[in-house]
Design a protein around this nucleic acid. Structure first.
Lengths: 354, 354
DNA sequence: TTGTAGGCGTTATCAG
DNA sequence: CTGATAACGCCTACAA
């Protein structure tokens, strides 16, 4: 009879992951003691602790996160949703974010939204459902439902990569438009009057929108007609940047300077320029935005807007930790984005391209 | 009496996140029905479903992942642990991995180990504890404890970015050494005899080790003395690549070709070459490995080893899904890494640098 | 189609 | 210092 029972047991109860109870049994203590060993080791006698930890190791026990979260109502996990993982635009900032969180014993979960507010909303729900105690969001463009959801869930969140004093939201970043305007003024100072702009799709991307607006504003400030600007919108990728550049340069009035909403697009523009036999910056100037790694290694090195990636990541982490702890995160903070002057921007050619 | 009870309840129960019960109450149904609405909508009448979903929206309800996982013993979440998020080396493969998982309704959690086996072990535990149903791992170098843990937990896992038939583990990737050897033969065919090699730290990184070995083997095959190779180890970064390159070129017998274990290092080498006034490939050749985006946009375009990022990511996902479903994932698969011939590799200069 | 009730693995509150 | 035991929020037979 006994074998039969054992058999049935073996069939019904798949000996899956070891549980607290397994450890307790092996160590000859109660589950409560095991739990204490893991969470508040000082409240357990040296002796039993050793025994329990041995059992833990022996079984390869790992606490079940779900059960733990369920019981303790806290996960020590933060989430971040970035538009893309592929372009490396957010990599450095995210790394800084993660480093700072690590310092507080917090784990980071990352999801990407592919620049789609709808997808982002899904990711927000997924991350919160997974128990994220707080969320890092990029920019301000998202569905109203996202905000309603966050509010109902009372999930602390900060907006990074942007700064908008008019918003009621906690944010840390820089004025995307202001920096772009400053760069545009530099371009104009160099005599350029026909300007091309390659932007990422602006819908659902306030940074892209603000960067475009920055250019427009600068143009307006200098009394230049709006149609001195040729704008192409295209998703972030080197290939798209290249194609957009070529299109820009095939128009009857060629721009003498092509500004890009992003270093990735600019890198594409640069490589296509070379392929087209155009010298940069002698024949045409190119500028970028973000100052990611490739900006420096591309030829010629890219004149671009330097973004304070690390400071944003670190700052966002600190704010979020404060909020999670019920402390005051302080006001939104505006960081400075500066112009990194390198080689791809030069004076306008005397005879503009035809 | 009733009011009093209600009161106590209100005080004790912080109105935190809305729960299934809240939704059920608002919709006037049982929790079971709400659960069904969310998981098997077809088993619920059109009418009640609408009512329930309304309630869900109204309360901003999100299922508690922990509770759900606890009850259903499945998370539909896979994990991936990559050495670094910063270098973009794994970005494309990871994207493909995620895309394929998405097709199966699986969410991806990503963690990075900073090339440290100890840190990786921690991340493995964290991900498994969080309920990852399966794991994507890079390479074979990890602590024995990691493997013991994975075995005890019965967590399906595959090794990517490498292929090693001698292993018992499920893997999908390419032979890092073979591809590097092939590239080395090409270099030798072009007359180079003094070769510099910039590698990532080899400890805890079997890919780096195999790539180095690939060079050594090719050299040996051609009967060249081992000291015709100058090796520098340095962590992946553009700056480090640049510094290593300069160091290599400052030795008394300058290499005529500098091979790099990675495109990032190669990009650094390239930019430093330019700064040093060295023409590539006329004065010195440079090669990379991985064929990530920057390989094409750098000047001159990088001759490098093309790695089947997407195929690996997709394949790994399929294997893992099969394993999770208790199906046969098939054997380990070896993919081909090819040489992407571009401009940075040329014949050895007639008069080698002194 | 819907409701009832038991259990998932931990933590936390009480007693001992 | 340690051991019962009641939540925690959800899923899923089983019943109705």
């Amino acid at each position: 009879m006994k074998p039969a029972i054992t058999r049935i047991h073996a069939i019904e109860h798949d000996p899956g992951s070891p549980t607290l109870a397994d450890v307790a049994q092996l160590a000859g203590v109660s589950t409560a003691t095991v739990s204490r060993c893991l969470n508040t080791p000082d409240r357990v006698s040296e002796d039993t602790r050793r025994r329990v930890l041995d059992a833990v190791r022996q079984l390869g026990y790992a606490p079940n996160f779900g059960a733990r979260a369920l019981a303790s109502r806290r996960t020590d996990t933060f989430g971040a949703i970035i538009p893309t993982m592929e372009a490396a635009i957010f990599a450095r900032g995210l790394q800084a974010f993660q480093d700072e969180l690590g310092r507080h014993g917090i784990t980071l979960l990352v999801a990407s939204s592919s620049y789609s507010p709808e997808l982002e909303e899904e990711q927000i729900r997924a991350l919160v459902a997974r128990g994220a105690d707080a969320l890092l969001l990029i920019g301000h463009d998202r569905t109203p439902e996202s905000y309603a959801f966050l509010a109902k869930q009372r999930t602390p969140h900060v907006h990074a990569w942007t700064f908008d004093a008019s918003r009621e939201f906690q944010s840390i970043g820089f004025d995307n438009g202001k920096a772009m305007a400053r760069l545009t003024h530099k371009v104009l100072d160099l005599g350029h009057r026909n300007i091309g702009l390659i932007s990422a799709p602006r819908v659902g991307n306030d940074r892209a929108r603000q960067r475009c607006e920055g250019v427009r504003e600068a143009l307006a400030t200098r009394g230049l007609p709006p149609d001195s600007l040729r704008l192409i919108e295209t998703p972030y990728s080197i290939a798209n940047g290249a194609a957009a550049f070529e299109e820009l340069m095939s128009q009857d009035t060629r721009p003498t300077a092509v500004m890009c909403g992003n270093d990735v697009l600019a890198a594409g523009a640069l490589s296509r320029a070379r392929k087209m036999g155009l010298r940069v910056p002698q024949d045409v100037s190119v500028t970028g935005y973000d100052d990611i790694d490739i900006a420096e290694i591309v030829t010629p090195a890219l004149t671009t807007v330097h973004v304070p990636h690390r400071a944003m990541g670190r700052g966002a982490a600190r704010m979020l930790v404060a909020m999670r702890n019920g402390e005051d995160p302080g006001p939104s903070v505006e960081l400075e984005a500066t112009i990194a002057e390198r080689e791809s921007l030069g004076p306008a050619p005397v005879t503009p391209g035809h």
